[in-house]
Design a binder for these strands. Structure first.
Lengths: 306, 306
DNA sequence: GATTGTTTCATGGAGAAACGAAATACAATA
DNA sequence: TATTGTATTTCGTTTCTCCATGAAACAATC
């Protein structure tokens, strides 16, 4: 048996899975056709890793029937593999746990003071995972180490004033980002954003709003604001916006404002986008300010959830 | 022997050391005199820990001769222990390592790509410490995980444009902090700040500037800016300012601008402080803007250090 | 009854060992 | 020579146990 000599087997690693997606992306980007050969060295170099995980990823692709190994001559492309949906929020147990902890604390399912081992029991996660999650939550000022043992929630989450402060902060930095002298929008990014928003808008208008749309909508939203930060040319503005999104991700994964608000949101984003493409930064900034100001006035209906 | 029953011995724990300092602080704050008794329960409650580490800390105080254990009646204060200097940058191996790594990378003593084990070898630290340091550096966008194994420096440090972006960002958020509607300065904080700055100013004018003054000066400086963030009443502004200081701490521990600049810096801070106390927020913000703008124009003389 | 002294339990850190997987070096093949 | 196939080395995660130490309960003392 030839297969047994390559020990690929069952589960692709995190890295291998990432590489798999990137390889597929490169295949499309380079416009390869069936019959083309995939050079391992070049892939390894372009993706910044060694050949080992590349080979494993290719082996997985072969398992799907998209490529075939030609002995001593490498992998040949048989069919174009479909592009996977980008940016799923990391199923496994890393960012996932952070969201779950924050969510459960928001519902008062977790006590204010809690120890690592207790969290390990509750979520069935290893100490390391729990630790990493707590560290990152601490970085967002959501928990803090107690002096001795254990951690304490700071309850920035359901805090009403925290929400307003967050919006005030965002109004400051996001408008500033838009009027930065070095602001330059990447045209391809704007294109993708427009398309995504128009699709979301159409879906919302058609009443297609499933329970899974919530996360996707949030991520599109986040990508919009982060893209503006990146375009500002100031890495600290960009980092601050990204940080705010990380914070919002913890409490905003379930959309509580209904479809009507989704429509408004998309339209406002599209309007800002238009102004940005027209280099009308002053108006775009004003629109952004109003966009955030309006959003800050919405009442999050927390309690009526289970 | 009575001592052997209490197993305190040699090395005070991190927690015990912290508590020791805090207990001393409370003794002074409460204005206790020799003869007073130190209640374990109350100390434990005020400091948010159990009695166990409190007892250990008190035992250490007894070792210094400042208190004495009266059997079954607790600790009696014999003499006022001296207040330790606050905010030493954590000798041990936590924050310390972060600064050292950043410093060495800034001097090009570390390669761009590096593995954890290599860092362990170089600094003789445990894997955990190195990991924690790298995670925090990653959080500041100074390193990033490579796809496979290892880490890569992003070199935000000696990057000239990063420096300017940082100052632009600070000009934005720190002036915004001052003009926040909820801005309220704690009078005691202002008092301490004024005193510290005047002392530093006097020392600088007298030409007393040792190699150790550098860190202390930086920390005073940082405390000033962070205090303004805290006074703003917006936790995200405060957090952003604190984060910028954390970043600056990595490259600014050695002051390269000479004593003259220390004098200017202190005077500007004192002027801002005055305006703030007079509730003259607009002018204070303008002064802050100019303060940062001037600082951003200084040329950091990097290379001439060893 | 309040406070200290003492014991017991739980927490989380340190260290070692084992393992899976990525990096690297080397051999084989076109 | 360039590329793939294979073996070796290295890395970092996982998992385990051990143990100091902090939390909490209980007993003793004033």
């Amino acid at each position: 048996m030839k297969q047994s000599s390559e020990k690929i087997g069952d589960s692709p690693t995190r890295l291998q899975q990432d590489l798999l997606g990137q390889i597929i992306g490169l295949i499309h980007q380079d416009g390869l056709r069936p019959g083309a050969r995939l050079n391992e060295n070049r892939l390894a170099q372009r993706l910044g890793v060694s050949r080992t995980p590349i080979r494993a990823a290719l082996e997985h692709l072969a398992g799907g029937g998209y490529v075939e190994r030609q002995p001593n001559r490498g992998m040949e492309l048989l069919a174009l593999p479909p592009e996977p949906d980008a940016a799923e929020p990391a199923e496994g147990g890393e960012d996932d746990l952070i969201v779950r902890i924050a969510h459960d604390r928001g519902r008062d399912l977790l006590p204010l003071d809690i120890s690592e081992t207790e969290l390990m029991r509750i979520y069935g996660a290893s100490r390391q995972i729990v630790r990493a999650a707590l560290e990152r939550l601490a970085d967002l000022d959501i928990v803090e180490r107690k002096a001795g043992y254990g951690w304490r929630f700071l309850d920035t989450l359901q805090d009403r004033s925290a929400r307003l402060e967050s919006y005030r902060f965002r109004m400051l930095i996001e408008t500033a980002a838009i009027v930065e002298p070095g602001f330059t929008l990447r045209p391809d990014w704007a294109e993708v954003m427009r398309r995504d928003h128009e699709m979301a808008l159409a879906a919302a208008l058609a009443g297609q709003w499933g329970p899974s749309s919530s996360v996707g909508f949030f991520e599109m939203n986040a990508a919009f604001h982060e893209g503006i930060g990146d375009a500002s040319g100031n890495r600290y503005l960009a980092a601050a916006i990204r940080r705010q999104n990380r914070l919002r991700r913890l409490s905003n994964y379930d959309w509580t404002h209904g479809v009507a608000r989704v429509v408004v949101n998309c339209r406002e984003h599209l309007e800002i986008l238009e102004r940005l493409e027209a280099r009308d930064h002053q108006v775009a900034a004003a629109l952004m300010r109003r966009h955030l100001d309006m959003a800050s006035r919405l009442q999050p209906s927390f309690e009526s959830k289970d």
